[in-house]
Computed example of a mutant assay.
Amino acid sequence: MTEVNVTAPRGAARRGAPPAAGGRLPSQTRPRGAPRAFRGGRARRPMAAASRAVTLPAVVEELLSEMAAAVRESARVPDEHLLLLKFVFGSSALQALDLVDRQSITLISSPSGRHVYQVLGSSGKTYTCLASCHYCSCPAFAFSVLRKSDSLLCKHLLAVYLSQVMGTCQQLSVSDKQLTDILLMKKNQEA
């Protein structure tokens, strides 16, 4: 993969961060063709999905926005975007794409406008995702995202965002009472 030199984070030299081989810090490299957010700039446009009350990091917003534009133009995700997904999310990107390919994501909506996503995980368990606040009920989200801060998202939440971008999310309309029951059932199972 070709590397491109970008500016170091402000104050990096003063903090005494040793440069990597080639005189660049590891955070100073990005794949060629990466979204502008990799270069330290602000994302050019907000994410298309209006359901995001809390924002994702700029690089993720930019990548998903560019993927959505590419899907609108050509009905497919370019290889360049798939490589960037792998660069940002590692193996979770492939697992999330597999969930999208298997159509494991369902958007459950109620007449009051409330909605949640349910993702049938690779283990056969169903997880509830709230895209508006970037939450998933899976153990990986609790451990890797919330506790250790190793990951930006779990594979289930990433699959939700990818299914929104690709328009492959299954839809299910339920009553407000049924949606409440779905959420309470999940809470009781976790307790």
Rank of each mutant, 00 (worst) to 15 (best):
T2N: 00
E3M: 11
V4H: 05
A8V: 07
P9S: 12
R10M: 06
G11M: 09
A13E: 14
R15S: 00
P18D: 07
A20N: 10
G22S: 07
G22L: 03
Q28V: 03
R36F: 09
F38D: 03
A43V: 08
R45K: 10
M47W: 04
A50C: 07
V54S: 13
L56P: 02
L56N: 01
V59G: 01
E61H: 02
E61P: 01
S65D: 12
A70G: 11
V71I: 03
P78T: 05
D79A: 01
L83E: 14
L83R: 10
L84E: 04
L85Y: 01
K86M: 09
F87W: 13
V88D: 00
F89V: 02
F89Q: 01
L94N: 12
L94H: 05
Q95L: 11
L99I: 09
L99S: 01
D101L: 12
I105F: 03
T106F: 05
G113R: 02
G113D: 04
V116G: 02
Y117R: 08
Y117M: 05
Q118L: 12
G121C: 08
S122N: 14
S123C: 15
S123F: 10
K125T: 15
K125N: 14
C133Y: 09
C136N: 02
S137I: 01
C138L: 06
P139F: 01
A140R: 11
F141N: 02
A142L: 11
L146E: 14
S149W: 05
C154E: 02
K155R: 11
V160C: 01
S163D: 09
M166H: 04
C169A: 15
Q170Y: 12
Q171D: 07
Q171C: 10
S173M: 11
V174A: 11
S175C: 04
D176T: 10
K177F: 10
Q178S: 14
Q178W: 04
Q178D: 11
I182V: 13
I182N: 06
K186G: 12
K186I: 14
K187H: 11
N188W: 13
Q189A: 14
A191D: 11
